[in-house]
Design a protein around this nucleic acid. Structure first.
Lengths: 224, 224, 224, 224
DNA sequence: TATGAATGAGTATTCATTCAT
DNA sequence: GATGAATGAATACTCATTCAT
């Protein structure tokens, strides 16, 4: 549910891939996708040429066009596949955090730890993805899908401790917490903005303070 | 390497431009800068041609090369100048917020309101700037400069209410607050990532919740 | 060189095709020929791909290469077969006209009517054929063959009324009449030139005037 | 009138050329046009590359794109200019024939001689032009313009001897004569069809017979 | 024998930069 | 100084043909 491939395939914008199911075809299809993915990670953006993909993946340019109508579609396919994998991993990691959290505070720390580490590990791919999402609606939509999945899972996890929340509007408060948490991590990791984070700071500190901040917000109603 | 002073110097605003001081030269210099700035805003990125600048600014391409060594330098100059103006405005706006804040809570709300609105107003220019900062060290450095200025001013403003802060490490807490606040606003405005914010949400709510969250974090020591 | 018998032989209809004689093979052979013919008619030229033929005829590209050495040979085969059919039909139609003509004048009208209508009906195929004939010697030769057949039959038909001809050199006069008649019809139908005929005019008028002109030429010796 | 350049420029489809008026620019503009024209004549079609034009004309590819938006526009410009020149020459040659013709018969012979020779001389350019006209509406329109000019001039010339015409409908008869005459010459010269004329025949004979045929048609009313 | 995936040479087009006038 | 025409390297995309299965 939510992570089955069919959803990703269609909802993300619908480029019906000519994806072969087996044998040599499948192998060369894999090679072109992973060559493109590797180049995306190495360069941090999609400004490589199809000749680069052709050489790195040991596939002919014609083969690429046999599978995709354009360079753009190849790149979109890489991103879409990556997002599907991210959705799977998010599910697993949030589940793990939920098992560790016995109170709102410990849960928040565990959730932020898991999400932050996932995003950090996949930074090399997320950076070009975010960058492209701002101009390419197909990738934008796919990215949104991954974000929404994470948002929904986090909401469910946090709402399990609804009784601890003192904020007058728990639904809105949780939504804000997730949004802000994600923004802070993404920015610290330089997604879509500077490669080198805008200020040095300390990764461990950020995670801790972010957890504390979110917890404090949920546990203490604003005086107004 | 990478840390040599010259880089910092250059980026800090110094690149000795062949900037004319008066008359017709000055006027055409202005026209090329503002044409480039307008294109940056319109397109949301720097993927326009020098021919576009030439037509829009009614300057010849040769004139542009008379002032700048490359297209990159022209764009860097636009960003640098923009950042200088942002620094000025930040100072004014933060000063205004300080005069409105009589307690930590009211101050935080006022600060966030001012900063958020400034960034929103200048979004059209900040988006291409952020986007470029991730690949161009010169713009990255200039952007960092503007960020640091804001950071320092905000720190000073908040530290005026140091006595209200319950967090065991006020310096670190304030630093985190600023970082997170900036990240959340920037992301909501779609800087460097998706043009359309990743989730709908509500701008006024975000500002309020962000203020509350920061305040809560500062006013309540984490139980640990 | 250029006159060696083999060329003539080949072009004349002989290219030893690997043409299967029966069963499934025969059926798929037919499908590739008629798919190519259909594409030729639809597009008005041979600028379709073998993939198009493959899809339209439900034959694999490999199968096409099993029968033909190249795309060119496939197209030549289509044209050759078409010309063979045209030759058959010409014979029938000219025979029909001959039975209707009791004098030179009525004969000329009947001949022109039949030929003109045949060419009009087959315009969709003759246009790409003519177009190709100018660059492809094989198709050129095949086309010439069809033309010569028509020329010979028309000559025989007209010469049956040799006694009516007043032109001092009846053989030459008849040859010119045929050549000019064919040229006028072909041009009016837009063969090899503009798709839309160069001037509007009226098809029925053209046929009538052409008949009258040919008749007048044959019946009246030039005063010289 | 009818031959002024402005008509050709606009009515032919309207590609407003960025045509320089003098100096080095003008020279390189000329070089690209004549290089393209030469290639068109040599190859008999437009299947040369812009690199060919670039080398032959000693112009950079960029320069070509500075003047034309595409290869197609370059070729269209060559054809348009050629047609303008043809229109000029037609006027002169038809005028010359008119001065030679003292009766309808001598006029027809002179007209056909001049037109036939003009088309023969320019065959190398007319062949690719006709070929292109069938697929390119811009060239088609320009070609039509040239044809119409010739048609109008011939009509006027022939109608000067209207009293000699015995055909019951002189206007229609003259129109048919022109159309058929043009078709026969064009076909004999292989315009738009086979490079090598479909049948051998004799150029001088064709011109003579064509003249006789047209004259006979005009001088003798069909018996009906 | 049939299939259709893989190959890769060939080409129009873009645009930062140079330089003659 | 100022102009904008000229340069040409760089790159996505097409499609006839080959060949592994």
């Amino acid at each position: 549910m939510g992570a089955e491939p069919s959803v990703g395939d269609e909802a993300a914008g619908g480029t019906a891939l000519r994806e072969p199911q087996q044998g040599r075809s499948r192998a060369s299809f894999e090679r072109m996708l992973s060559a493109a993915a590797a180049l995306l990670r190495e360069r941090g953006s999609d400004d490589f040429t199809l000749l680069d993909v052709s050489k790195k993946g040991k596939v002919s340019i014609g083969s690429i066009y046999h599978r995709f109508d354009s360079k753009d579609e190849l790149i979109q396919a890489v991103h879409r596949r990556f997002i599907e994998q991210m959705i799977e991993r998010q599910g697993v990691l949030i589940g793990k955090a939920v098992r560790q959290g016995d109170r709102l505070e410990t849960l928040m720390h565990a959730l932020i730890e898991e999400i932050a580490e996932l995003l950090r590990q996949e930074g090399a791919m997320l950076r070009p993805l975010m960058r492209r999402a701002s101009a390419d609606p197909v990738v934008g939509a796919a990215g949104r899908l991954g974000y929404i999945d994470m948002h929904d899972r986090l909401t469910a996890a946090i709402m399990a401790f609804r009784s601890e929340i003192r904020h007058p509007d728990p639904d809105r408060a949780v939504a804000s917490v997730i949004r802000i948490m994600y923004a802070a991590i993404a920015r610290f990791l330089g997604f879509g903005a500077t490669e080198t984070p805008l200020d040095p700071g300390n990764w461990a500190d950020l995670k801790e303070d972010l957890s504390d901040m979110c917890t404090a917000f949920l546990l203490h109603a604003p005086k107004r």
